[in-house]
Design a binder for these strands. Structure first.
Lengths: 350, 350
DNA sequence: CTGAAAGCGCTTACAG
DNA sequence: CTGAAAGCGCTTACAG
């Protein structure tokens, strides 16, 4: 392979320690010497060796903090599985994880949990950020402390972070619209959209993507209305039940956020589950155990998965690579919007 | 973390070299000493450290041979990208790759190319095996030489190999059937199936999965016939064109192997592209540039992707981990059967 | 059969 | 500011 630090030291006529100082921007080195070392390194096309670096770094192993508002949200089980798998695969490289979770979306609590992690001495953070000024301020502070942060699953507008790993919400809505386009097979259908909250950027982006899909390639599909579920199954159940009793009743439903199971229950209890004339087709999001069950039983028509395992796995991988190498992660690492139906539920990666 | 080899040596009262001999089944060690070392190691819960091992092994880096009948088959471009990415990510760990490709399915040539790789000194092999006695014999020989082999994309019945990374063909056909179930939305549809060859196990499994999907959940869909394309676009074009002129004409087509682009061309030229009444819906496999184009233009309804990038990536990962650790790969590592339509073509991992 | 040494490519105290 | 040394956890010749 390439040249080693030893070789650079020999060529420059300095010690390996000095080469290390020059290459890694450490303090206490004569600028002239540094320049000379850097010049030789460039000439030789020096690239630090990851294996050597990992072993050398073992005295101060990388502890990654993770904070997510995931309690009571099965989606994050998948993210967690991915985080854990990635950490396990790198345990021998000195990687470990400290996890804090909470229920709901209280920014004060999120700040507190992140501070707890900092007190524990984490050197990098993966965060599912709440959209709130306090979180923006926190990110600003972490940036100044040079603590690398990755946002996961949800990004935060204007937040300082190294990168984002998660869903492209617009594409997610597009995919849902696409499935309904196929289902309609050229016929008109009245669609009710249930979103989580109009105040959630991601939710709105999904609805927007859905609209665009219909407009551009399925003009026969008309949106009856867009209602909020507050990510709550009970509310989703209530609103959809009411809609099914009204005239004209929806012939299809797109649940753009939480409440998929509640909506499925409403459809099932109204005796209109399934596809075909007189039935109410329903497209959801994510693949929790409850959603999986509705898919298998033929109540839920399809769901758009956002690869939670992959989100967790990549977050760890990117933070570790950055730690070792200084490799900068892409600004946005987007997971694929998987179309999942009963028939491709099994098999394949999580 | 855990104990090191140094600690085991100290506790057993032998040198590190001897511990290494015991732990790694090397020759030249007193059985009694070996037993003692092993006992201590077990007591201490010793697990070798991957970082140390990788650096220690740098003197004889891992060269992985890859042979695939991929020329003229765009699908394998994705596999290759995955292979290359995984090798690049491990280049600092001493991993490199030697690749041999060929056009068509000549077992004699496959054997020769593998022998070339062996002559180059490869220490592991990823192979897209042709189903042929010569290949079985080759695998037997490699097994005796203790050369780890992974079959990729296609498995070979009765072949000795460490594991398989690739598609679950039955599930792939199931997924295709599921998409057509949605498209039919409860109505009857006449479906023509175009397969590659009745002599290809994978192709037959796909057709079987497709049949099962229809039988179990879409009884209204009837299979008009199953015809062979020999994986050739010209033949697929010819056979489908003829079928579209017959009565009753198919209302949907499932192309279970090669020939997707040819079939799309037939549909387009007959002026029946698209979905809806009077149109011929078509489900294909894989996501080559040509297929992607037909999806975008609305000729191809959907395609079932088998994650070629992932197949290549995982093959390298598993062979490397086995080399370092002795970790045995799963017998079958199955990729997900992705449902790809125009609306979820973009974004996400390759 | 066994041990002591050198080395993989880096980092980190410790002297000076 | 700089160098020499020790160390990360392993493997591999080389003596004996």
């Amino acid at each position: 392979m390439g040249v080693s630090i030893k070789e650079i030291a020999r060529l420059t006529g300095v010690s390996r320690g000095t080469v290390d100082r020059a290459l890694n921007d450490r303090a206490g080195i004569d600028p002239a010497v540094k320049e000379k070392v850097l010049k030789v390194a460039t000439e030789q096309g020096y690239r630090s060796n990851k294996a050597g670096r990992i072993l050398g770094l073992r005295k101060k192993p990388l502890r990654i903090g993770v904070q997510m508002p995931s309690e009571g949200n099965d989606f994050f089980l998948g993210v967690r599985a991915g985080l854990e798998r990635a950490v396990a695969a790198r345990a021998d490289f000195g990687v470990s994880m400290a996890l804090r979770t909470m229920k709901g979306f209280d920014p004060t609590l999120q700040v507190r949990q992140v501070r707890d992690l900092l007190a524990e001495g984490i050197q990098a953070l993966a965060l599912v950020p709440i959209s709130h000024p306090d979180i923006l301020a926190l990110l600003e502070e972490l940036h100044e402390r040079h603590l690398p942060v990755l946002t996961v699953n949800t990004d935060i507008v204007g937040g300082k972070r190294l990168g984002y790993v998660g869903t492209d919400y617009l594409s997610s809505g597009l995919a849902a619209g696409g499935v309904l386009r196929l289902l309609a097979d050229g016929r008109p259908l009245r669609v009710l959209v249930l979103t989580g909250s109009f105040r959630m950027l991601g939710h709105n982006q999904r609805v927007e993507g859905f609209r665009r899909a219909l407009e551009s390639s399925a003009p026969g599909l008309s949106i009856l209305g867009v209602e909020e579920t507050e990510d709550d199954d009970g509310i989703a159940y209530g609103k959809l039940s009411a809609a099914l009793d009204r005239t004209p009743a929806p012939e299809a439903v797109y649940v753009a956020a939480g409440g998929v199971a509640g909506a499925c229950r409403a459809i099932e209890e109204h005796g209109v589950a399934g596809i075909g004339p007189g039935r109410v087709r329903i497209i959801g999001n994510d693949l929790t155990p409850a959603i999986r069950d509705y898919l298998e039983r033929g109540v839920l028509t399809a769901t758009i998965g956002q690869q939670p395992f992959e989100q967790g796995y990549q977050a760890i991988r990117l933070l570790f690579d950055h730690h070792v190498d200084g490799t900068l992660p892409p600004d946005r690492t987007l997971t694929h919007n998987e179309i999942v139906i009963a028939e491709n539920l099994k098999g394949g990666t999580p």
